[in-house]
């Protein structure tokens, strides 16, 4: 593993999420092999890498959808290794899964409502609903439409908004740019920066390295289940290796 940029360049001090020596396996196949990473409070951290590098498996282990074979995950200092995802939501983690995972036969309104399923503070929920609709006004226009009839971009907006409705401290996003038009991707990434500005930390898995590194304060490059490089997003953008391998230059 090689660090890029000046050592520990101005990352926030407070730890939010930490993985130590994480292994994820599907039977005999090792998808993640001893990955250690951290997300500090207020940060956007990107995980980039090729198809099959283990990005999604890692994210699923963090969000409790997969049980790690080995290693330790802590959230705000508390051990959450192997904890099922429904308990993690209550602890402030929200996951917008790959392929969006919206409820296709329910309306936009109902989808957002389910995002706040665990919450009992009706006023706070209403305020957050107004907030996500101000981020994505397009959703307001499709309010009563079945989510399955939305375009790909709208579905991604809905998935992110729905995840935000649980008022998470950590938002996990899996390939938010997947299959979307360039303008929509631009819009979504601009809004992710806004969301981060509100104090929501983000762990982002992305194949589009350029976008991810521009947004991320800190980034990890995954290769065949291991961390090949890490460093500040901007520094990795400048790195010769990253440019050659992931930015096609």
């Amino acid at each position: 593993m090689s660090g890029v940029g000046s050592a520990g360049s101005e990352r926030p001090a407070e730890l939010l999420l930490e993985c130590q020596g994480l292994h994820v396996a599907y039977g005999a196949i090792q998808a993640v092999r001893g990955v250690s990473l951290s997300v500090r409070k207020g940060e956007v951290v990107a995980l980039i890498g090729r198809n099959g590098a283990g990005k999604t498996s890692l994210l699923r282990a963090v969000s409790g959808m997969l049980r790690p074979a080995d290693g330790r995950i802590t959230l705000e200092g508390k051990d959450i290794t192997g904890m099922p995802s429904h308990l993690l939501v209550a602890r402030g983690m929200a996951h917008a899964p790959e392929g969006r995972g919206i409820f296709p036969n329910l309306t936009v309104e109902e989808n957002l409502g389910l995002g706040a399923w665990l919450r009992t503070d009706a006023d706070g929920v209403a305020a957050d609903e107004a907030w996500v609709l101000s981020l994505f006004p397009r959703l307001k226009e499709r309010w009563a439409a079945a989510a399955g009839t939305l375009s790909g971009g709208e579905q991604q907006m809905l998935a992110i908004s729905r995840a935000l409705m649980s008022r998470p401290r950590l938002l996990l996003l899996d390939e938010p740019s997947l299959g979307l038009a360039p303008q929509v991707i631009q819009l979504i990434f601009r809004i992710l920066a806004d969301v981060n500005g509100k104090g929501v930390s983000i762990l982002l898995v992305e194949q589009n390295a350029h976008l991810a590194l521009n947004l991320a304060g800190h980034a990890y490059v995954l290769e065949t289940g291991e961390v090949a490089m890490e460093g500040a997003g901007k520094a990795l953008l400048q790195s010769e290796d990253v440019r050659r391998a992931y930015l096609g230059e």
Binding site: H86, V89, E110, G113, L114
Partner: peptide
């Protein structure tokens, strides 16, 4: 509503905090 979520997409329901 949690049952509806399970019917629609179990993984997503779990991600909403529903103990499916």
């Amino acid at each position: 509503r949690s049952l509806t979520a399970i019917r629609e997409d179990e993984v997503a329901a779990e991600a909403m905090g529903v103990n499916t």
